[in-house]
Design a protein around this nucleic acid. Structure first.
Length: 925
RNA sequence: GCGGAUGUGGUGAAAUUGGUAGACACGCUAGACUUAGGAUCUAGUGCCGUGAGGUGUGUGGGUUCGACUCCCUCCAUCCGCACCA
C-alpha cells in the first residue's frame, strides 16, 4: 500500500493519547529543557496556517531535545480572558465562559491534528478560578510590597511602616510618588485613612488618580502599549486622555534592572532595542530655577547641564500647575486661550502636528541659578507634562527644538560653543569646547557635565539625576471578562482579601455593559452573587490581559498545586524557560511585564531566577494572499484585471476559496453574496475573470484566511509540518502559498518507497554491511541536521532530508542500520510517519522517541581525493580531481601541467598560484 | 528624524570561520509511460549569446590572490519609537 497519511496519523495520535506518551515529570537524573510557546487567545476564528508555524518549530525542537536525552517540558494552555468573548457576550448575552470553552475545544482539536507532543495534563487557562486564584495572590504580594532602593529589591510594606514609625519618610530611599514629607511623630498622628493614602504612594500595586488612555468605544482604559498612534490596538478605536482612579503597577521601580537584565538574555537586538527605548533611560541633572515673585521654584531636568550658561528662556508644559499662578495680568488672556487650545487637541494631534511652532509668554521671569540673570518663562506644547517635571530650560544653541522656538519668537540665541556657527541650526552634537560659560570655559562636553553638576549640587541648585521614560502601568480595566481583584473597600479604602478566601470568582451579572452611573459591569453584581464579600463593596474593576500571562510559564511547572502558585522544588528543577517562541508584537507588553513580575517574585524569594525567558525566537508572520475583484463605481458590474484601463473601479476583497490561480469562479461568486447574484462582468478575451492580488496580513475581513484543516485533509499533518518549516527561516515573514506543498509531500512518498514495497511491506534488510556511500550520506546528514537544529535553522534540515532520500534512492540502500538512523533524524519533523515506519522495520511499537539521536562519526566522511575547483583570478573555470595526499606544491605542479590550465593561461605566465589544501586553487594571471 | 532588520533566478530559498553563487523545492520547457490524472520517470532551466564566451547576489566605491560574506557611500522595503529636554 502507498503512504496512507490519514490512517497513519489518526492511528498514532490516538496511540500517543492512550499511552500518555508525552507526560513529563521532574527527573533529577536527567538534564531539563524547558521549551515554551506563547499561549494563544482562543478566538472564534480558530487557527489559521500562520499560528502553527511557531508551534511546529517548538515541537520539532522539543522532540529533538527529547531524543538527545533531555527531560523536556513542553506545555500549552490558553490566555483565555479577553475582549472578543466579552464583546460577543454583550451582543448575545451568552456568558463569555461559554464562548471561551467552545473556542478552546476548537483550538484543541486543531492542535491535536498537528501531532504536537504537549503534555496536556499541564494545561493552564488564565480564566479558570484555579489559575486566577494565584494571579490574585501575586497581586496581593505586589500590593503588600514597596521597592527599597537601598537594598535594590522589593520588600514588605510592614518594613516600610516600621521605618515610618521610627524616622518618618525623610530618610527613606524608595520608589514612590509621595509628595509630602513627614516625621515619625507626624506619621503616628495620621489616622488610618491618611496612613493608607500615604502607603499607596509606595505600594508596588497601588490605587491612584492618574491620567489614563480611555477608550470610550471599548468602555475601558488601556495601557500605553495597547495604544498605537492614538488608537486602540484592538479594534482601532479612538483613545482620549482622562483622569481616573485606577490600579497601577510601579514598574518604574524596576526600570534599571529591566534595562540591565537585557544583557543576560539571548534575544534579538531589535527586541532588546525596543525594550531599551521603551524604558528610555537618560542620565542628567535636575536644576532648580527660582521664580521672581513666586515662592516655589521650578525644577527642570536636563541631560546637558554643561549648557547651563546657554539658557535663554524656560518653557513649561501648558498643563504645568504653576502656570495659572505666575502668569502676569496682561498675559493671562492669551495664556488661558493657549491652554484651552492645548487641552482640546488630543495627544495624537499634538504629536502629528510637530512642525508648527506655538507658544505663549507668561510674562513671568525665572532667575538663572548661576548667573542670576532674568529669564522669560513661556508655555508651549512641545514640552510634555508627563515627562520629567513638565518644564525645560531652553538652550537654543544646543537643542534644535529650543532653537526653532527661539527663532520663531525672536528670542535671543546665546552661543556658548567656541568656533561654532549657529546661523542655520543648533549645535546638537556632544562635541566642541564651551565658552562664555564662567567656570566651564574651555571644558569639553563630558568635563562640562561633570563640573556643572558638581557646582550645582554644591550651591544647592541641582542634583545629578537619572530619568526613565517608562511609566507605571495602569492595571485595571472596566470590563467583565478578566480577573477580579482580591480587594474590598471600607470607607473607600482598599483592603486585601485574606488568602483563605481566594479566589474571588467572577460574579453573575445581568448584563456585561457598564452601569447607568458608568461603573464597570461588576458593579451590577448583587452582594450574594460574590463568592466572598467584605466591607462596603468589592472592587469593580478587573485585571488587564497581561496579568495572567505575566507568570503562566511558572504555573506549567506545577499546574495543580493548591497550596502554592508553584512549589519551590519544582521551580528549582525547571527554572527559567530555555527557549521561548512567539510573535514580536509583545515586545513592550507581555515580554516586559513578565520580566517585571519574575524579578519581583525573585526578590521575594519565591523563585531563584530573575529572567523568565533565556532564549527567545520571534517567528515571522505568515501573510495571506488576498484576491480582489474590481467593481465599476456605483454599479454591479465587475471588470477583469486586464480590462481595468480607463475604468473608474473600486477594488473589493473576494474570498480566496472562489479564486484559483487568480481566476474567479463566477458562478460561485454570484452565490457568495445576495447582492452579487445578478452581477455582470467585463471579461478577458478568453472569457475568464482575472482577479488582482496582494500580500496582506491574514484576517477574516480580507477573506484570505487559509486554515490548516484543509491542508491536513489533503496532505496530512507531517507534510504540513515539513512544509511550514521548509518555507524559510523561522524569524522571517513570508506570504503563504500552497504551490510548493506538493514538493514536500512527494518527498515523504519517495521516502516511504525507500522502506516499503507497493504492498506496504518492509523491504529493509537486516544483517548486511552498509555501503560506504550509504554511511557517508547518513553521517553527512547527521552532522548537518544536528548543526542546523542547534542553531534553530529548521528550514535547511528539510532540504538535507530530501538530499539524503535522493541519495539513498540512487544507492538503492536497503540497509537497516542506516535507514533506522535516518528515521530518528526525520522523526522530530514527521513523527507519525516515522513511528509507522519504525514499527514496520521491526521495532517495538511507539518506541521511536525513546531512541537516542544518532551521533556523527567523522570517519565515514574521510575521502582520499578532492575535486579541486581551479579558478583564474578568482573565477572558477574547471575542476580537477586530485589526491588529498598531495601537498600544496605538488597540487600546484599537477595543475600547472594540465591541458585546461594551459588553455586558460593562453600563453601567459601565472603571477602567483594560491593553493588551499582540500579547498581551492586560484591562479593569478 | 532616530533605532533595528532585510535586499540573491519567474517563486520560496541555500551558501555556518572570506574559497565552486543559486543547493533543495515550486514553476516552466521538452520528452517517456499512460486506465488521460493534481500519478511516475528522464533531460533542461540566473541573465545575454547559435556558439566560444561574457555577465551576475539592491547602487557606487574599497580591502583581498579571492567578497553574497569584511569596510565606506547611497537607494529601497518592512518593523519599532517619535517633540523624552
Amino acid at each position: 500500500m502507498e503512504y496512507n497519511f490519514r490512517e497513519i496519523e489518526s492511528k498514532w495520535i490516538s496511540f500517543w493519547q492512550a499511552n500518555n506518551s508525552y507526560q513529563v515529570s521532574e527527573d533529577s537524573t536527567k538534564e531539563k529543557y524547558y521549551i515554551l510557546d506563547m499561549f494563544p487567545y482562543p478566538s472564534g476564528a480558530g487557527l489559521h496556517v500562520g499560528h502553527p508555524l511557531g508551534y511546529i518549530a517548538s515541537d520539532v525542537l522539543a522532540r529533538y531535545k527529547k531524543l538527545q536525552g533531555y527531560n523536556v517540558l513542553h506545555p500549552m494552555g490558553y490566555d483565555s480572558f479577553g475582549l472578543p468573548a466579552e464583546q460577543y457576550a454583550i451582543q448575545t448575552g451568552q456568558h463569555p465562559a461559554v464562548t471561551t470553552e467552545e473556542n478552546i475545544k476548537r483550538y484543541r482539536s486543531q492542535l491535536d491534528q498537528l501531532g504536537f507532543c504537549y503534555d496536556w495534563d499541564r494545561e493552564v487557562r488564565t480564566s479558570s478560578p484555579e489559575y486566577y486564584k494565584w494571579t490574585q495572590w501575586i497581586f496581593k504580594q505586589l500590593f503588600d510590597c514597596y521597592y527599597n532602593e537601598k537594598s535594590d529589591k522589593a520588600e514588605r510594606i510592614s518594613i516600610l511602616i516600621e521605618e515610618f514609625e521610627a524616622n518618618g519618610n525623610t530618610k527613606i530611599q524608595a520608589s514612590h510618588d509621595c509628595e509630602i514629607e513627614f516625621t515619625s511623630i507626624e506619621w503616628k498622628s495620621f489616622d488610618s485613612e491618611k496612613k493608607e493614602a500615604v502607603l499607596q504612594n509606595y505600594r508596588l500595586a497601588y490605587l491612584a488618580d492618574s491620567w489614563v488612555n480611555w477608550c470610550p468605544e471599548l468602555g475601558t482604559v488601556l495601557a500605553n502599549d495597547e495604544v498605537i498612534n492614538g488608537k486602540s490596538e484592538r479594534g482601532g478605536h479612538p483613545v482620549v486622555q482622562k483622569k481616573m482612579r485606577q490600579w497601577s503597577m510601579r514598574i518604574k521601580a524596576y526600570a534599571e534592572r529591566l534595562l540591565q537584565g537585557l544583557g543576560q538574555i539571548d534575544w534579538t537586538d531589535s527586541l532588546k532595542e525596543q525594550q531599551k527605548n521603551w524604558i528610555g533611560k537618560s542620565v542628567g541633572c535636575s536644576v532648580i530655577f527660582n521664580i521672581e515673585g513666586y515662592d516655589s521654584p521650578v525644577e527642570v531636568f536636563t541631560t546637558r547641564p554643561d549648557t547651563i550658561f546657554g539658557v535663554s528662556f524656560m518653557v513649561l508644559a501648558p498643563e504645568h500647575p504653576y502656570v495659572e499662578h505666575i502668569t502676569t495680568e496682561s498675559n493671562k488672556k492669551a495664556v488661558l486661550n493657549y491652554q484651552q487650545a492645548a487641552t482640546k487637541k488630543s495627544e495624537r494631534d499634538r504629536q502629528s502636528d510637530v512642525k508648527s511652532i506655538t507658544g505663549e509668554n507668561t510674562g513671568a521671569f525665572a532667575i538663572h541659578p548661576l548667573s542670576g540673570e532674568k529669564i522669560e518663562i513661556w508655555i508651549a506644547d512641545y514640552v510634555l507634562a508627563s515627562y520629567g517635571t513638565g518644564a525645560v530650560m531652553a538652550v537654543p544653541c544646543g537643542d534644535q527644538r529650543d532653537y526653532d522656538f527661539a527663532r520663531h519668537f525672536d528670542i535671543p540665541i546665546k552661543n556658548i560653543f567656541a568656533d561654532v556657527d549657529l546661523s542655520e541650526a543648533a549645535h546638537t552634537d556632544k562635541t566642541g569646547i564651551l565658552k562664555d560659560s564662567a567656570f566651564l570655559d574651555g571644558c569639553s562636553v563630558p568635563e562640562g557635565i561633570k563640573k556643572s553638576i558638581e557646582t550645582l549640587e554644591l550651591k544647592g541648585f541641582g542634583k545629578g539625576k537619572t530619568n526613565y521614560r517608562l511609566r507605571d502601568a495602569v492595571f485595571s480595566r472596566q470590563r467583565y471578562w478578566g480577573e477580579p481583584f482580591p480587594i474590598y473597600y471600607k470607607d473607600e479604602l482598599p483592603y486585601a482579601v485574606e488568602d483563605q478566601n481566594l479566589p474571588i470568582e467572577l460574579p453573575k451579572v445581568d448584563s456585561y455593559l457598564p452601569t447607568q452611573e458608568g461603573e464597570p459591569p461588576l458593579a451590577r453584581a448583587a452582594k450574594d452573587s460574590w463568592n466572598y464579600f467584605a466591607g462596603d463593596r468589592m472592587e469593580f474593576n478587573t485585571m488587564p490581559g497581561w496579568a495572567g500571562s505575566s507568570w503562566y510559564f511558572l504555573r506549567y511547572m506545577d499546574p495543580s498545586n493548591e497550596n502554592e502558585f508553584v512549589s519551590k522544588e519544582k521551580s528549582e528543577y525547571w527554572k527559567q524557560v530555555d527557549l521561548y517562541i512567539g510573535g514580536a508584537e509583545h515586545a513592550t507588553g507581555h515580554l516586559l511585564y513578565s520580566r517585571f513580575w519574575t524579578k519581583f517574585l525573585f526578590d521575594q524569594g519565591y523563585i531563584s531566577f530573575e529572567e523568565p525567558f533565556h532564549k527567545l525566537i520571534n517567528q515571522g508572520m505568515i501573510l495571506g494572499k488576498s484576491s480582489f475583484v474590481y467593481r465599476i463605481a456605483d454599479s454591479n458590474t465587475f471588470v477583469s484585471k486586464g480590462k481595468l484601463q480607463g475604468q473608474d473601479t473600486q477594488a473589493i476583497h473576494v474570498d480566496i476559496s472562489l479564486v484559483e490561480n487568480n481566476k474567479l469562479n463566477i458562478e460561485d461568486f454570484k452565490k457568495w453574496r445576495k447582492e452579487y447574484a445578478d452581477a455582470s462582468f467585463i471579461l478577458e478575451e478568453n472569457g475568464d475573470y482575472i482577479c488582482g492580488d496582494e500580500v496582506e496580513k491574514m484576517s477574516k475581513s480580507k477573506f484570505n484566511v487559509q486554515t490548516p484543516d484543509e491542508l491536513i485533509q489533503n496532505y496530512g499533518a507531517d507534510t504540513l509540518r515539513l512544509y511550514e518549516m521548509f518555507l524559510g527561516p523561522i524569524e522571517q515573514s513570508k506570504p503563504w502559498d500552497t504551490k510548493g506543498i506538493s514538493g514536500v509531500h512527494n518527498f515523504l512518498r519517495k521516502c516511504w518507497r525507500l522502506y516499503c514495497n507497493p504492498e506496504g511491506e518492509s523491504i529493509v534488510q537486516q544483517g548486511q554491511e552498509a555501503t560506504k556511500a550509504a554511511l557517508k550520506t547518513l553521517h553527512k546528514t547527521i552532522k548537518k541536521v544536528t548543526d542546523d537544529l542547534d542553531r534553530y535553522s529548521l528550514n535547511t534540515c528539510v532540504s538535507t532530508f530530501m538530499i539524503a532520500v535522493n541519495e539513498f534512492t540512487e544507492q538503492k540502500c536497503k540497509n537497516l542500520e542506516v535507514l533506522e538512523q535516518f528515521l530518528i533524524l526525520l522523526a522530530p519533523y514527521a513523527p507519525h510517519f516515522c513511528e509507522e515506519l519504525w514499527m514496520k522495520i521491526g521495532k517495538e511499537e511507539g518506541s521511536l522517541f525513546a531512541a537516542n539521536f544518532p551521533v556523527f562519526n567523522a570517519d565515514h566522511l574521510v575521502e582520499d581525493s578532492f575535486d579541486y575547483p581551479i579558478s583564474f583570478n578568482g573565477k572558477m573555470r574547471f575542476k580537477a580531481n586530485l589526491s588529498l595526499s598531495l601537498d600544496r606544491t605538488e597540487v600546484q605542479k599537477e595543475v600547472e601541467n594540465m591541458e585546461l590550465t594551459k588553455k586558460w593561461l593562453d600563453g601567459k605566465t601565472p603571477k602567483k598560484v594560491i593553493v588551499v589544501h582540500g579547498k581551492i586553487v586560484n591562479i593569478v594571471v
